[in-house]
């Protein structure tokens, strides 16, 4: 195995750990906000580690650039959907309180 493969393995494995914990949090946490907290944090870092691992595995600058672009776009989408879901559930809970 060459050095970039050695670099990729721990990155991919730790990324998988982040995804696993995020998924456990999504399933186990009690309300919408703590679930969102678990899944978005794990998603961003987990996907970032995966992208870093795959980029070093590909050993190609062009592929790495595209992967980073995927990561940035996925983070953008995750941020906004998290914002929208949490705001919606906040409004719904306020409506229930009244």
């Amino acid at each position: 195995m060459s050095w970039h493969e050695w670099l990729a393995v721990p990155l991919l494995l730790s990324g998988a750990v982040f995804f696993l914990t995020g998924t456990i949090g999504l399933v186990r946490f009690p309300d919408t906000w703590s679930r969102l907290h678990a899944v978005t944090k794990a998603d961003n870092v987990g996907l970032g580690l995966m992208v870093a691992g795959l980029a070093s595995l590909s050993a190609s600058a062009a592929v790495a650039f595209k992967l980073v672009l995927v990561w940035v776009l996925a983070m953008l989408a995750a941020t906004f959907s998290c914002h929208l879901i949490s705001r919606y559930s906040l409004r719904e809970s306020e409506r229930d309180d009244r």
Partner: peptide, 15 residues
């Protein structure tokens, strides 16, 4: 929709 969604569409549209 707050200003965040408008900003998102602004970023996404050209992409």
């Amino acid at each position: 929709h707050g200003s965040m969604v408008a900003a998102l569409v602004g970023v996404l549209a050209p992409l």
